Simulated scan of single mutants.
Amino acid sequence: MRVPLSLMALLAALASTAPLPAAAEGGPVWDACVGLTSTPEERVKACSTVIETRSESGHRLAGAYCNRGHGLTEKRELDAALSDLDEAVRLAPDYACPFNNRGRVYSFKRDFDHAIADYDQAIKLDPSLALAYSNRGESRYNKGDLDGAFADFDAAIKRDPNYATAYTNRALVYYRRHDMAHALADYTTRIKLAPSLLAYIDRGNVYRDSEQLDRAAADYGEAIRIAPTDARGWRNRGMIRLYQGDDKGGLADYDKALQYDPSDVFSWNNRGQAKLRLGDKQGAIADFRKALELKPGLPVAREALQRLGAL
């Protein structure tokens, strides 16, 4: 039986606001505009008030545009974000924040050359900005430049050894290079710094591909503990249980996975395989048919139905 492997998590090079130059303290609106804990909606609203009232000028006004651009990027209003970041660059061409955040907009637009050019400028203006290195590494990775991406993620970590996302990104490059030992080390550091659902799934995937199935199952179990209503932990652990011949355990995990994500075609197919192994032919047929309904022509489901004389 071929059980499809889950995909490695995408790079998570998150943009955030860069520090503003020292200036007089602002009020609650200003604090919400530049605060790292503000939601995108709160940031956009507060920065809009700053901009519309012209309560700030110079670099602080540029900071309001930069931060509103960040909030709009998080809301995926990319054209509006680009307009704000262009204005921030015009107001303060010596300020790294808008170049870094504009680079991220270009990255979302898959214009990686413009993104890299903006990250280059952000780094030139602020060589200590670990975030800009990590973001530039993401764009280089997406262009297929693994060596350049690795150098940037490494540089980000050297500038900020507690920058968890950079470890995730560097680990993915190690994984692509089939250097599993270093990938595991980076994912382990990421988990120590900022444990999360995806951190455990990522490390579990490396354990899985290194044929350390018990450790993979343990990491997927931690993902389930952290986010019990997220299907990803359940379906990844279910796959390991099927690999190990624990069909009842695999079936139970896929039941949970489908409870939380009934649109996942491979969970239907893999649960069908578990049911078939356990002697539930009709249940297996129903699951394979559901997999085909979601993904017509899926070879493994079609072949299973043909073997069962149900197609």
Rank of each mutant, 00 (worst) to 15 (best):
A12K: 15
P19E: 00
G26P: 01
A32S: 14
T39D: 02
K45I: 01
S48V: 11
S48W: 02
I51R: 03
R54C: 09
E56Q: 15
G58R: 06
A64R: 03
Y65N: 00
N67C: 13
R68V: 11
G71M: 09
L72V: 04
T73N: 12
A81S: 15
L82R: 06
L85V: 08
V89S: 05
A96Y: 08
A96T: 03
P98I: 06
N100R: 04
K109I: 13
H114G: 04
A115R: 09
A115H: 08
Y119K: 02
I123L: 12
S128I: 09
A132E: 01
N135T: 01
N135D: 02
R140S: 07
F150E: 10
A151K: 09
D152K: 05
D154M: 09
D154C: 08
D154E: 14
A155L: 02
R159C: 02
N162M: 11
T165C: 05
T165V: 14
Y175S: 10
R176P: 02
D179K: 09
M180P: 00
L184R: 00
A185G: 06
R190M: 03
L193R: 09
A194D: 00
P195E: 01
P195L: 05
I201Y: 10
I201V: 15
R208E: 11
A216Q: 10
A216S: 15
D219N: 13
G221T: 12
A223P: 08
A223T: 05
R225C: 05
P228N: 09
A231W: 12
A231F: 12
Y243M: 11
D247M: 05
D253E: 07
K256L: 07
Q259D: 13
F266S: 13
F266N: 14
G279L: 11
G283I: 06
A284I: 04
G297K: 04
P299D: 11
R307L: 14
G309T: 04
G309K: 03
A310Q: 08
